[in-house]
Design a protein around this nucleic acid. Structure first.
Lengths: 300, 300
DNA sequence: CCTCACTGATGCCCGGAGTGCATGATGTTT
DNA sequence: AAACATCATGCACTCCGGGCATCAGTGAGG
């Protein structure tokens, strides 16, 4: 097999068509250059130059080999540059998990920041519920998660990205929409409630419990996705707690009602990554997010 | 700069994730392999493996570099193969010149042979008159010409590819079409004749002269392309000599008339190449043409 | 808790490949 | 015919890469 140095030598001779000048360009003397070319020709198995004592010309095979040689050398020079960029987090792949709800609140802004700060990083987006994201982080299948607390800080680090208000969503013309004040827990007494699964949507389950202690029997449905929740409300199946940004879904036939002030920043979204995280792009992204204005709660 | 051997070593370690086994696969011992990887990391400027005394894993940069390394090594292995194929004439580029007339007689069959015998050879086709082709051959701008005699055998070699009959083409309902016998020179006495340029179409000029000695004054036009000739005949401007295959042009309003037997194989087409020709594909093509049935004159 | 086995890193020496200098072979120019 | 130009070759030296022996750190098992 040949050497990259031989490739470099070959290119120089092919361009100069003169061993002496090529040697000069390569900062060496002519004799070893002649020998390198001979070795290369032996390795390739073809005569690359037609040379007598007066002139040097590329053979047809040499012309063909020159193309490959140039691209080979180009790749050889590019590869380390790429590797260094990846090491600095300026290139490579970033696998981002997100919950369906964060998809219509923060994801757009976040991707704009990524586009700007990490133009050469490929982004792999995967929608999963919080629990799945944490499992994927542990398995090394995800670099960063956009998910809900709680976070196990033994294995993960996190940063609060955004808070938004919790709201109550009710069908249009529902009695609650008549009240011209924040809805309180007792207002919901006896009303059918669309509830969250304590397994797949633990965070919203807990939030709902906190704002409207559930009496046995008023849970109309149990779901795990915000979109499903709002759709069921629109269908008149009950009322439900949703984050403020859910109004962006644009589902017709529902009203978003205010809750007491305690609910104003109740819904948190965190960026979460595994401790001992290997992908430098994660930290570049986090830094970019930190510098780049805060991600405010969306105005409905 | 790194070495291709280091790339090979890196790939082995990346695949085995174990220096000992990788070394075994590379037919070497572990210590020099460790050092090669260290050198490679220094050359690339990035740590490629995260390794403690218990396990070896690729870093993110290493993962990125592995892709480039594989393609680099693949190219390095492919390049000599390509060069050897080019040297044997099985790949590369073949620049073929042809006259407009050969375009509608032999070119199709020839290209079919090329396709079959030289599948990996790129074909560059250029239409030129014979004189231009010979000049292009001399200048090294053409590898092979499909052209008419005479050939200067001091500088060129040639092979007869095809002979076809010379015919007379006349407008429909022309008095000559009434004759139910081969047309002779004296039949043309006083008739307007579409003649060829002695400069650009020397071969057909000579043929025409031989079959119908020209009296002063009966040359209606002087052209250099068969297509132009037949078009002028169709327009009623006169009669002309054309090769048999010109009937393939499908130009309406003309009749192709037989000449005496001496004209039956009068039109020759040769493959011509420069002596000391460098492109091996030329000879591969000529051999393929020789083996592959003769190129018969087209049946009108 | 200690020992052993495993794994990658390091020290040392040797053989071979690459380099430079001097020179050869050959064709061109004056 | 002599001088020149150009690529090839002989020779000595240096340095790189490889193998052998060994070190150092870690996890498993008694």
């Amino acid at each position: 097999m040949f050497t990259l140095d031989q490739i470099r030598s070959f290119i120089a001779v092919a361009e100069e068509l003169h061993f002496g000048r090529a040697a000069q360009r390569l900062n060496m003397t002519q004799p070893p250059l002649s020998r390198q070319i001979q070795k290369l020709e032996k390795a390739v198995g073809v005569r690359l130059f037609e040379r007598d004592n007066r002139k040097v010309v590329l053979t047809i095979a040499g012309t063909a080999f020159l193309e490959d040689a140039r691209s080979l050398l180009g790749s050889a020079e590019q590869a380390p540059i790429t590797a260094r960029r990846v090491a600095r987090g300026q290139a490579g792949l970033l696998r981002i998990g997100f919950t369906a709800a964060s998809g219509f609140s923060i994801l757009g802004q976040l991707l704009a920041v990524v586009e700007d700060a990490l133009p050469d990083v490929d982004i792999d987006l995967r929608e999963m519920v919080t629990r799945e994201q944490l499992a994927a982080l542990s398995a090394g299948e995800l670099d960063i998660a956009l998910a809900r607390p709680p976070v196990d800080h033994k294995h993960f680090s996190s940063r609060l990205l955004q808070t938004e208000a919790l709201r109550l969503v009710a069908p249009e013309r529902h009695p609650l929409t008549e009240l011209e004040r924040p809805i309180e827990g007792k207002d919901l007494s006896g009303m059918p409630l669309i509830m969250y699964s304590p397994l797949s949507a633990r965070y919203f389950y807990d939030l709902a419990i906190r704002h409207a202690p559930i009496q046995h029997g008023n849970v109309a449905h149990t779901v795990s996705q915000i979109v499903t929740t709002v759709s069921l409300v629109a269908a008149g199946r009950g009322v439900a707690f949703v984050p403020e940004s859910a109004s962006r879904l644009g589902i017709e036939g529902v009203r978003h009602l205010q809750l007491p002030a305690s609910a104003d920043h109740a819904v948190e979204l965190h960026a979460i990554w595994r401790r001992g995280q290997r992908n430098p792009a994660v930290h570049v992204l986090l830094d970019a997010v930190a510098k780049n204005s805060t991600f405010d709660a969306p105005k409905a």
